[in-house]
């Protein structure tokens, strides 16, 4: 299964992800009208990309009074999609989403659909803060990183660890 992963510590706050998202979905560059949003505050000193995690037990799907959300199985995994025709713009989904990942602006509900398995946000992310990967590959990469870190802190680099 492929998922969209987010690593907030790598985000530099540029918002290219949001701009690419709004460009793909609405043909405009508008960081506020995107399914991925970068929360940033220079004064509080943080950057944090907010994305839809395509929850297994998704609250948007579960509680939408109009059943405007549905689950679609694709080649790379399950995607929670949104049916505009059923939506009454009550914004309930946006308020209950535990990740605050649904945007309502200009009478449009903006919900991540993973761009049919080829997310545009990931393509323009320059720092690796957003990745779209197989869960096994992602986990293995993360474990390797952790291993390198631990070994280097123990004074044995990953490369030199087997020499003794």
């Amino acid at each position: 299964m492929k998922y969209l992963y987010v690593y907030p510590e790598l985000c530099s706050g540029c918002r290219e992800c949001s701009l690419a998202c709004s460009l793909g979905k609405f043909g405009e560059c508008n960081p506020k009208k995107a399914a991925v949003s970068v929360v940033r505050d220079e004064f509080e000193r943080f950057e944090y990309p907010v994305i839809c995690m395509q929850c297994d037990d998704a609250l948007c799907l579960k509680f939408c009074p109009q059943n405007a959300y549905y689950k679609e199985s694709t080649a790379s995994g399950e995607v929670i999609k949104y049916n505009k025709d059923k939506c009454i713009k009550c914004r309930f989904c946006a308020t209950i989403c535990p990740h605050c990942a649904i945007t309502v602006l200009d009478n449009e509900v903006v919900k991540c659909d993973l761009c049919d398995g080829d997310p545009k946000c990931v393509k323009v992310c320059s720092t690796g803060a957003l990745k779209y990967e197989e869960e096994t590959a992602e986990l293995s990469e993360r474990r390797k990183k952790m291993a390198r870190k631990v070994l280097s802190e123990m004074g044995k680099t990953a490369a030199g660890a087997g020499k003794h």
Partner: peptide, 14 residues
């Protein structure tokens, strides 16, 4: 502002 900048050829730009 909440208004976007309309792009002539979105796919081309991406």
């Amino acid at each position: 502002g909440t208004g976007g900048i309309k792009i002539k050829y979105p796919d081309k730009l991406q």
